[in-house]
Design a protein around this nucleic acid. Sequence first.
DNA 1: CAATAAAATTGGTAGAACCAGTGTACCACT
DNA 2: AGTGGTACACTGGTTCTACCAATTTTATTG
Lengths: 269, 269
Amino acid sequence: MRSNESILISEHSTPSAAFAFRPVPKNRISEDALAQLVDMIVSGEVKPGERLPGERELAQSLSITRTSLREALRRLENMGLAAVRQGDGIYVRDFRREANLDFINFQAGRGAALEPQLLLGMDEARRLMSAMVVSLAARRADASDIKELRRVAGECPPDGSPELLSGKWDYDFYLTIALASKNRAFVCLINTMKGMFATFRPMYSHLDEGRRESIKDLNLRLVDAIESGDERAASAIVEERMRQDMEDLAKRAQSPEKRKSKTRKAGVK
Amino acid sequence: MRSNESILISEHSTPSAAFAFRPVPKNRISEDALAQLVDMIVSGEVKPGERLPGERELAQSLSITRTSLREALRRLENMGLAAVRQGDGIYVRDFRREANLDFINFQAGRGAALEPQLLLGMDEARRLMSAMVVSLAARRADASDIKELRRVAGECPPDGSPELLSGKWDYDFYLTIALASKNRAFVCLINTMKGMFATFRPMYSHLDEGRRESIKDLNLRLVDAIESGDERAASAIVEERMRQDMEDLAKRAQSPEKRKSKTRKAGVK
DNA sequence: CAATAAAATTGGTAGAACCAGTGTACCACT
DNA sequence: AGTGGTACACTGGTTCTACCAATTTTATTG
């Protein structure tokens, strides 16, 4: 028999290795095809309202089978990027006003370059929503929630460590807060944004160095605020911290020329 | 040739007919299969961590092909309800803490009964986020945004009309506000919640009757507040309105026995 | 008993055939 | 001229069968 029952579907293996592996380069040809289709759409290579080639021809162009292409199309229309209609064809939608969070999550999850304007917007949304969730958690968290929060907060990797940069810990922490808020809608929201944590954390990593207080200590203080039920104090902590981060990000986005030969964007190229 | 370019992918036909037709019974066997799988999971028929039958067997159980089943599985794992691993099998995940908004949207979109706790949470989230978006819109909307907002607000169907109950107008209005907020992340968020508008609107419909101000007038007033750039006033309008609605909903959810033979839930049955 | 290799199981792809809506053009009828 | 019907080509939707690839299990071997 295979693994059965009581097997948690955790996606982190972390075999105590010092390096953070990719969540698994899960090959799946439909994913690659999907990525190509998304690129075609966001790059403007195909415009909104336009009709794509038929599935047969499209599959041949991508050098895959129609079967695999169709699996990709299901997600493509699920992201709000395309409309597939039987007997008619595949139509490109206006991703600027019809795409949904699944699209953003997909882009962030594969490390695609997101437009600065979108990044700022997402960060703004993240900041506002985090404050909300924390506030709710402060109002409703019970003893077991606090215990769990403190446990996760205590597991926070040291500042600047690659484990922290992976964004996985951020996800765990916010998910725990959302669970404590007793609002399952926020839990779903956090899960939807899962792929984005890995995108944002590295952006602020350089800020962590100059911080007097370690991330772990800061968040432990946040848990204290939640435990005492002080909504204002709790939300203020995340508000203040994130506002600083965002302002810095905005500064860098607006005037990147001022950072001459300093850090040079760190790889990617 | 077929329709090409400049063809908006609008989902409303409304040929000035007095009757509202169904949006089309979009068949797609993978959708049905998906619905069944989702039901199995949320009903607890299969528990988190458990391993489902293989694709071949599962397909046979559902009386469909493996191909169609796989298209359903792609979305199932996309919702966070299952994990599919090659050579291993299909595992059920804990939807209570791993499901995302795509899941909620799917459930709401097909009219599935959502748990009261989840409904309240979603409504709470909707209220808070609406206030945020409106606030941002008040801060950043330009002349053309105001013009568009006023146009959409003016198209608001009369209170209680079936068109309004469909939730489509709510979606259009909030999407326009999100566009005015200049924050594309919120636009995506609204799109993600698209399927939920049809779920919530009917819940509040009975409140519209006793309202002194029609929905259209209320929202036109909201647009005025946005135009004047008064964040507090704008967010206050939606906050106040939605808070009332939610309190009433909570009241009904907690003590539904007090509504004896009054309106009797209106159909469904 | 541990390391290794083979077999069985399961998901992933491929390819072709056929079913089911859509759109178009053409034709008969009014 | 206008209406409705009809046949045909085209496109997505579904089915089948066979095979590839990763994982687990079992048997084999040193």
